[in-house]
């Protein structure tokens, strides 16, 4: 694993085991501009218990909120305090 250039955020979450649930979480991480640094999960009954470490230049609290919106994400918390970063200057189409 290459060393990340951006601050890391550790999320602990319970994700539904419904079809597509894990893909849905990974898609949001990618699309919102973060990289998965580490992912550990274990299936317990009808949920996965997961620890997800991501890095990225955008404010991690925005990713937290995007993930919280997913119906398949049953619980979610950031274990370390997400870095307060200003919203980025985004490129326009």
């Amino acid at each position: 694993m290459t060393s990340p250039r951006h601050p890391q955020t550790i999320f602990e979450c319970q994700i539904s085991s419904q079809p597509g649930a894990l893909e849905r979480v990974m898609r949001v991480v990618r699309v919102r501009g973060f990289q998965v640094e580490d992912l550990r999960l274990q299936r317990l009954a009808d949920v996965y218990e997961a620890q997800l470490i991501v890095s990225g230049s955008r404010p991690p609290e925005t990713l937290l909120r995007q993930l919280q919106k997913l119906l398949d994400v049953k619980t979610l918390k950031a274990l370390n305090q997400p870095t307060q970063a200003a919203p980025p200057e985004l490129a326009c189409a």
């Binding site: 404010p59 609290e61 909120r65 995007q66 919106k69 919203p87």
Partner: peptide, 23 residues
């Protein structure tokens, strides 16, 4: 360009979707 948008203003944001706040 977002940084040049409303450069002199404080902002009140009213919404129902918390993921839009501070995006």
């Amino acid at each position: 360009k977002p940084s040049a948008f409303a450069p002199n203003a404080r902002i009140i944001h009213i919404d129902c979707d918390h993921s839009e706040i501070g995006k």
